[in-house]
């Protein structure tokens, strides 16, 4: 075949499917008989593909250059994104948590306040002198030395033996209170208050109020303090009045 502009145009129109049916039929007939033409068509096809590939490579190189000039990519920090429904649920959950936390906060705050008040008002009852050889003497020695952890088991043992029960029970309550064992202290003082003639009855009223305070039972503590302040001659009237106001 001759390499002329017309032949080239014919091949290009063939590759672009732009030939009329007649032109198409004639060219396909020639392709059967002219090996040179078939080779030329194949070459054109290769060159077209190659030129398209080269053009694409050039564009990709241009974009790679652009990329190099850009600020380096940094993944954004993880941000939690919620849709409206999730956001609504989140708000409700947050509100519920706040509502649950408010009473908890108030309770904790009150307990902290109660603890402070307990520390401010609690002074273990002073010890009593007992003759040497009295079963209570060893416990009282430990108690007076403020070694309540040593005193308490001795007092408990003595109670089991039925020795000097009135005094032992009262000091056991005090030792328990000093060791932060409010329930045991409450138990001891309540036993004392069951007996209006108990020698430590009025003292037990006051210490029971403090035991309730240590146990976080403000309502019971207040009631107990009110019973103390109802008696103006009570040895703890002044302190009980103050404490009641602070509660």
């Amino acid at each position: 075949m001759k390499d002329t502009p017309l032949e080239t145009e014919l091949i290009e129109r063939y590759l672009d499917n732009e030939l009329t049916p007649d032109e198409q039929a004639r060219l396909e007939q020639r392709l059967q008989t002219e090996p040179g033409l078939a080779e030329e068509v194949a070459l054109h096809r290769q060159l077209r593909l190659g030129l398209q590939s080269a053009g694409r490579s050039r564009m990709l190189t241009m974009l790679a250059d652009t990329d190099q000039k850009m600020e380096k990519y940094h993944p954004p920090a993880q941000v939690l994104r919620f849709d409206d429904a999730t956001r609504q649920r989140f708000y409700w959950a947050a509100a519920a948590i706040v509502l649950l936390l408010i009473p908890l906060y108030l309770v904790l705050n009150q307990n902290r306040k109660a603890d402070k008040l307990f520390v401010a008002y609690f002074k273990p009852y002073q010890g009593v002198n007992v003759p040497a050889g009295d079963p209570l003497s060893q416990a009282m020695r430990e108690y007076q030395q403020r070694d309540y952890a040593q005193a308490l088991p001795i007092l408990e043992r003595l109670l089991g033996e039925g020795s000097s029960e009135d005094t032992t029970l009262f000091f056991k309550g005090n030792a328990s209170l000093a060791l932060d064992q409010a329930p045991e202290a409450i138990h001891s003082f309540e036993l004392i208050l069951a007996d209006p003639l108990h020698p430590y009855y009025k003292e037990a009223q006051w210490y029971l109020a403090l035991a309730y305070l240590q146990d976080g039972e403000r309502k019971e503590a207040k009631e107990q303090l009110q019973s103390v302040v109802s008696d103006t001659s009570h040895p703890h009237y002044q302190e009980a009045s103050e404490l009641l106001k602070k509660l």
Binding site: Q46, G50, Q52, S53, A54, G55, R56
Partner: peptide, 25 residues
């Protein structure tokens, strides 16, 4: 073949390279 063509295009030079790129790509 693409590599050979790339070499050929470099040899072809301008403005032919641009003309063919404009038309075929």
């Amino acid at each position: 073949l693409f590599k050979i063509l790339e070499v050929a295009l470099n040899e072809l030079g301008e403005p032919c390279r641009t003309v063919l790129d404009m038309y075929y790509y």
